[in-house]
Simulated scan of single mutants.
Amino acid sequence: MAGLNVSVAFFFLVVGVCEALRRISKRLLSPGAYGCLARELAGSLQLCTSCLELRMLVEIGPWGGGFGPDVVLTLFFFLFAIHGASFDGASANPTVSLQEFLLRESNLAATAAKLLAQGAGTGVGWAVTKLYWSWELTPFHLIQNLIASECSSSIRTSPCHAAFVEGTCSFLFHLVLYKLHQSHPMYRVPALAAAVTFLTYTACPKTASPFFEPPLMNPSVPQSSGRRGFWDYVQVYWLGPFAGMLAALLLHRGNIPRLFQKNLLYSRKSKYKVPKARAAARAGGDELRRQRKGEKSSAEPRA
């Protein structure tokens, strides 16, 4: 369990460094620059490094450390809950940023800045994690460095099936986001962490399930010896989650506000229904008032 303790210490170190980065940048930068750049970069860095280390434990832990997936899933739940509580409103997810743009909650410049910051944070996360693995502090990291040269694909099924799995997970993930949007953080954070943990456990055997952070999967790694190529990775880890987000948006809103205003799925109805008898009585009362007003005006003496 010594190797697991080192990984846990790494998780706490990453969260602490990213929290310090958020606080420092919040003091030095304007609110707009902090919200679009620093906050998203720190969130993506924190999420990327944690998930890469967890994925290493998932692949090596059962036979290299003697612990089952329950340990990793428990770590994943608590880590995602910590991320949700410490992100300070950052999404650290390109599909969520694009969703905000389609909902007219963010303009084009802010969305582009968020996507660039998320990409930069993920790139830094990859570099930091690989450097950390190169130190070989535990047997897990030694094994990881030995098998890294094989570049085994994370897609363990056909690209179409894998894209469907990622799209379905993204669809359910965004529906949960919509449902919990107005909830108190005390309830929203653990509920979202539980949903993401369940979806990850369900889809991980097929696609490694990075639907909550597509840049985690590097599409440029395996391209030879019959392994998955660039376009397979784009189809599975980018188009799949994006299609799932669009489907969830259409189901939730019935339209895409950025593209068109007409509701395609739902007809607008009055929020309050008036019983027919009450509506008839109200119409009769209005007619009686009009008659009385007409009689009063006709009874007034002419000048």
Rank of each mutant, 00 (worst) to 15 (best):
H184R: 14
V189N: 13
L108W: 15
I147C: 03
L199G: 01
S134C: 06
A195Y: 01
E100H: 02
I143H: 09
C204R: 06
F140K: 11
L103A: 03
F173L: 04
V196G: 01
W135T: 15
K114I: 12
T200W: 08
L175T: 13
Y201N: 13
A195R: 05
F211R: 07
M186Q: 09
E136W: 08
F164Q: 08
P215E: 06
V128A: 12
S170L: 11
F173N: 09
Y178A: 04
F140C: 08
F173M: 05
V189F: 10
Y178I: 07
A208K: 08
I155P: 01
E100W: 01
L175W: 09
T122R: 05
W135E: 09
A117Q: 14
L180C: 02
E150R: 14
L172E: 03
P215Q: 03
V165Y: 07
H184T: 05
T202G: 10
P159D: 04
F212E: 10
C204F: 09
S158Q: 04
Q182I: 11
E166I: 11
R188Q: 10
F140N: 15
K114W: 10
G167E: 03
A90C: 06
C160K: 12
A109F: 12
W126C: 14
A148M: 01
K130L: 09
A208M: 07
L199E: 00
A112R: 09
A90G: 11
P214N: 01
A120M: 15
L142R: 11
F198V: 12
F211I: 02
T157V: 05
A113F: 11
T168A: 14
S209G: 00
L142Q: 02
T111G: 06
P190N: 08
A163N: 06
S134N: 09
A113P: 12
G121R: 05
P215H: 03
A113V: 14
S154I: 09
T95R: 02
F140D: 14
S97I: 06
W126Q: 11
L177T: 03
S97E: 10
C169A: 15
W133F: 08
A191D: 08
A148L: 01
A163V: 09
S154G: 10
T129I: 10
E213L: 14
L146G: 05
V165I: 15
V196Q: 05
S209A: 13
F164E: 05
C151L: 10
E136L: 02
A112N: 07
S152L: 13
P159S: 07
L180F: 03
V124C: 15
L98E: 06
